[in-house]
Deep mutational scan, measured.
Amino acid sequence: MEVRTIKVFTTVDNINLHTQVVDMSMTYGQQFGPTYLDGADVTKIKPHNSHEGKTFYVLPNDDTLRVEAFEYYHTTDPSFLGRYMSALNHTKKWKYPQVNGLTSIKWADNNCYLATALLTLQQIELKFNPPALQDAYYRARAGEAANFCALILAYCNKTVGELGDVRETMSYLFQHANLDSCKRVLNVVCKTCGQQQTTLKGVEAVMYMGTLSYEQFKKGVQIPCTCGKQATKYLVQQESPFVMMSAPPAQYELKHGTFTCASEYTGNYQCGHYKHITSKETLYCIDGALLTKSSEYKGPITDVFYKENSYTTTIK
């Protein structure tokens, strides 16, 4: 009895394709271990004539594949690729409408935090270190965002349907971005203890939790000093293409032309909904596939993004 075979390709990165001759009487799992086709788990399936010449994702289970996976995804987590594939199996079914010149995501599976993050990423200057993220990001900007969303979920250790947080998501993504040249110098002034300067680099240099107003941050924000008295913390120097200011959701007025974009969060910790506000020729609110415009805006804002380049204080 002759062994019926077909020729397929296996890959971990969709760049390096490895030619395989597979036995049609055995499952993919018996031949390769966990195997995925377009995100779908085909591990328990036997090869079919229609699979001839198709590319299958496999887990990096030998040295060659491990090197290829690390170079593309910059992670050695053995569960990463499987999590990416199972997320992709959902995100490829989502709709990605162009809204006001940006790629958004039609609401499904509690994905409003991903839509808000995706919209924000198209408006701030950011370059990702893992080629996987950078490639998928370019495709997302062009309207094909399924891979990018699935990668975000995998890097953030999230599953489809789980509630997510924009600030946490951005923080994970910033860790995989090139923020080497970003720098922030802060000064804390206390009447009792004097003053202390701190220099922050990388992710810490672009994120701040405690106030939404970048102007206020430049002037000074009140913080408790270690001595128990009130101290003032203010920005001395900022070198970065953008800054992200966050605070627990509270009524906040966004003035046209003073910011790049913002995240609105309605609801409580267990259950809520994100919308995205962007400042173009007027203010726009993007909620999944829905767009509304207004000249002014007041609502429960939790993150505001500002364009920056270089700032030095005039406070002496």
Rank of each mutant, 00 (worst) to 15 (best):
L59F: 10
L17Q: 14
V99E: 08
V12K: 07
T313W: 12
V42I: 11
T35N: 05
T116R: 01
Y172I: 14
D38S: 09
V236Y: 08
H176F: 13
N129Q: 07
C271A: 11
N187P: 06
H90K: 13
P97L: 12
A154W: 03
T35I: 13
C225D: 03
Q30V: 12
F9P: 05
T266W: 06
E296R: 09
N49V: 13
T116Y: 00
D41M: 10
V185H: 02
E215H: 06
T312H: 10
C227S: 01
T76A: 15
Y306W: 01
F80H: 04
R184N: 03
K93Q: 10
N14A: 14
E125P: 11
D62H: 10
A231E: 00
S25K: 15
T266D: 11
I152V: 11
T192Q: 12
G39T: 14
L119E: 03
H273E: 00
Q30S: 13
E68L: 06
S50T: 12
R4H: 10
N268V: 08
G202Y: 01
Q122I: 05
A117M: 03
A40K: 14
L200Q: 14
T198A: 10
G202Q: 01
K46V: 15
I315L: 15
D165H: 01
K298A: 13
P78E: 12
T198Y: 14
Y137L: 12
Y73A: 03
Y311A: 09
T211E: 11
S295Q: 15
K46P: 11
E296W: 12
A231N: 01
G82C: 14
F80P: 03
R141I: 11
T282G: 15
K229A: 13
T55R: 11
Y269I: 15
E168F: 03
G39E: 11
V221F: 11
V42Y: 14
M26P: 06
T64Y: 10
L118C: 02
H18F: 07
D165Y: 03
T232A: 04
M207V: 08
S50A: 13
N268W: 08
F217C: 05
A142V: 13
H273Q: 01
C261Q: 01
G257R: 05
T43V: 06
D135I: 08
K183V: 10
T192R: 11
D23E: 13
L212G: 03
N100S: 14
G272L: 01
Y73S: 05
V221S: 03
G272H: 01
K158F: 03
C149A: 09
L212M: 04
K275C: 10
V67T: 13
E296G: 11
T19S: 14
C112Y: 03
Y138H: 14
N157V: 00
V188H: 09
F56R: 04
G194S: 02
L163G: 12
I286M: 03
A40Q: 14
N111I: 01
T192S: 15
M85H: 09
G33D: 02
M24H: 04
M244A: 01
V243S: 02
P34T: 13
H48Q: 12
L121H: 01
C112H: 03
T226F: 10
V304I: 10
Q197L: 09
H276L: 09
T91C: 09
L200N: 07
Y73R: 03
N16W: 06
S294D: 11
K293C: 13
E71F: 05
A117P: 01
T103H: 07
T292S: 11
S79H: 14
Y72C: 07
S213F: 00
A87Y: 06
D135K: 09
Y297K: 01
C285R: 08
K316M: 15
S279K: 02
K183F: 11
S279T: 08
F174N: 01
K229V: 08
C193W: 02
H90I: 12
V243T: 01
K46N: 14
S240E: 01
F128G: 03
N178D: 12
K316C: 15
F217S: 04
I301R: 01
A154R: 03
E68W: 10
G228P: 00
A150V: 03
Y297I: 06
P34R: 10
T211Q: 06
L65S: 11
I152T: 09
G299L: 00
L291F: 15
K95Q: 15
Q251S: 11
C156Q: 08
S279M: 06
A40L: 14
Q222E: 13
N61K: 12
D41C: 13
V189R: 09
V160S: 03
T5K: 11
I6V: 13
H276D: 01
T232D: 04
T302G: 04
A205G: 01
V21Q: 11
A250S: 13
D287F: 03
Q134M: 09
K219R: 13
T116P: 05
Q230N: 12
Q230F: 15
C193T: 02
K95V: 15
S294T: 13
P34H: 10
K92Q: 10
S181K: 14
Y137I: 08
V189M: 09
L59C: 11
D62M: 06
S213A: 05
D63P: 08
K233N: 06
I105S: 02
S171M: 14
D13C: 04
S294P: 11
S25W: 10
D180N: 13
M209G: 09
E71G: 07
K229N: 15
R139V: 07
S104Y: 00
K229F: 09
S263L: 06
P131I: 03
Y84S: 04
K92V: 09
K280M: 15
F305E: 00
L126Y: 05
Y57S: 07
Q134P: 04
V189F: 08
Y252T: 15
K95R: 10
A142E: 13
A87C: 09
H48A: 14
F80G: 05
T27S: 10
Y155G: 01
R139A: 13
C227K: 01
S79T: 14
D165T: 01
G202C: 03
F56L: 11
P78G: 08
A145P: 10
M170A: 00
N100M: 10
H74F: 06
V8G: 05
V8I: 13
N61A: 12
T103Y: 11
H74P: 04
T91D: 03
T226P: 14
H176Y: 15
F148W: 04
Y113P: 04
P78W: 15
Y36L: 03
S25E: 14
K275I: 08
Q237F: 13
M209N: 15
I301V: 11
L186R: 04
I315M: 15
E308Y: 07
V8N: 06
A69C: 14
G101H: 01
T314G: 15
T313H: 15
A87I: 07
K44V: 14
S25T: 14
T27C: 12
D23K: 13
Y265K: 00
N89W: 09
F242V: 01
V236N: 03
R4Q: 13
S181D: 14
L17W: 07
P47L: 05
N309F: 09
D13W: 02
L290W: 13
Q237G: 05
G161Q: 04
Y138W: 15
Y172L: 12
L119G: 05
L283E: 02
H256Y: 10
I286A: 03
L121E: 03
C149F: 05
G210K: 01
L65W: 07
S86G: 12
P47A: 12
Y284F: 11
E204R: 13
A117F: 02
K233T: 11
L173E: 00
P300G: 06
A231R: 02
K44I: 15
M209A: 15
Y73D: 05
T232G: 00
M244L: 04
P249Y: 00
K46C: 13
L118G: 04
V221I: 13
T159H: 15
V160T: 02
H51L: 06
F242I: 01
Y269V: 15
P300R: 13
S86K: 15
A205S: 08
E125M: 04
L88Q: 06
N16H: 14
H74I: 07
G194H: 02
G161D: 01
N187L: 11
T91A: 06
V221A: 04
T64R: 10
I286Q: 00
E2D: 12
Q270W: 04
Q222C: 11
P60G: 06
Y284N: 08
V99L: 13
A117K: 03
Q195S: 15
E239L: 09
L235E: 02
I223H: 13
G194T: 02
T198G: 03
N268T: 10
D62E: 09
N16S: 08
L119R: 01
M26L: 10
S213T: 02
E2M: 11
G53I: 07
C149M: 10
K229C: 09
L291R: 08
T11Y: 06
L212Q: 03
R4W: 12
K233E: 12
Q197E: 13
R167S: 04
G202V: 01
K255F: 08
K316A: 15
F9A: 11
Q230G: 06
N16I: 08
D109Q: 14
P300S: 13
A136T: 08
T278M: 12
F174V: 04
Q196K: 12
P60Q: 04
